[in-house]
Write a protein that binds this DNA or RNA. Structure first.
Lengths: 170, 170
DNA sequence: CCTATATATTTTAGGCTTAAAGTATTTGCG
DNA sequence: CGCAAATACTTTAAGCCTAAAATATATAGG
């Protein structure tokens, strides 16, 4: 995944002959992807080595930590942006570990609420503190201005992508 | 994954009381991750719906397309930044589809070279053209300046992360 | 009430991914 | 040469993930 290749600077080439030259966007996507992958991989590695937990389980616990009363699997699925079947399995494994508990919804016999057990909450809070420091460490080379500018530009990129995605859903 | 929550603007809080407040970096990571995930998911969906191909297979073919003479599985593994076992399986499935061919290395009986078949190359080139347009479409909302600035900032972020990763490998 | 449709979840089949263990071969060195 | 270590690859076990089908329940309309 090298994204450092020099651009072929063929300003002479007629547009009609290269109607779809989107080199710049392709290179941006490659860089965005490798950058994210690099960080994500390191976080996965550290979570595993330090806490023996996977990133998906950490993410699920993070969602539950923000919702003290718990939530349904469907709600969890929406917030995590993954399929229903996926959260079914993740919740199952976390419940086996004693970190998550399920209870039936009093109003809807199809649904179940899930929430962190006291142990799950304690475990998550510990991990979350360390996790936050790792992220800070990984971004330590960025100044405050860079961070803010990146936030803004990524928001624009996200909005752009979201628009293209929803446009195709009509 | 909402990263739109307002920052708790507690400038009054003493540093000593909140020694590890890395909220900004955490929010940056969340945004970077959701942005990438959004685009990646859409590309996966379109590759599947349009060409009945997975992203990992597309990525592997992209590497081979850049190396006309083929390369070893180990080289492929390094370039794709995935495990050896992973490319073994991917290459196996692509070979079954007739898109990739293997031949023994003349000099090393442990190694094998893989390359695209003529059909594989043709198939990949077709997909790649469309893929490039999709990426351009997803980033269409970004101006040229935004794109360039993002490239620069992501390069900095990548360098920062790389440094933190290698520092832990000593 | 009864039925059609919608919703919440689980199950299934298939593919991706890794770490770790295993196999075959090559290379370096005494 | 002979053998220890390194290398290229495959296999295995476990987990993650999705789309699609299946199950159970809820809701709306006649």
């Amino acid at each position: 995944m090298d994204d450092t290749t020099a651009l072929p600077l063929d300003a002479e080439t007629k547009v009609s002959e290269r109607p779809a030259d989107h080199e710049a966007e392709l290179r941006l996507w490659l860089r965005l992807f490798t950058c994210t992958t690099l960080i994500e991989g390191e976080i996965r590695r550290r979570l595993r080595d330090t806490f023996d937990v996977t990133l998906p389980r950490f993410d699920l616990m993070a969602q539950l930590d923000k919702a003290p009363g718990g939530m349904t699997l469907g709600e969890l699925s929406k917030r995590m942006m993954v399929s229903n079947g996926n959260v079914t399995g993740l919740a199952e494994r976390l419940a086996t570990q004693g970190l998550l508990e399920r209870r039936a919804s009093p109003t809807d016999r199809r649904a179940q609420f899930v929430s962190l057990t006291p142990e799950g909450r304690k475990t998550f809070r510990t991990m979350a503190r360390t996790h936050e420091n790792w992220i800070a460490e990984l971004f330590a080379g960025l100044g405050r201005d860079d961070t803010e500018k990146l936030m803004t530009l990524l928001a624009r990129a996200k909005a752009s992508a979201r628009k293209a995605v929803t446009a195709g859903e009509k």
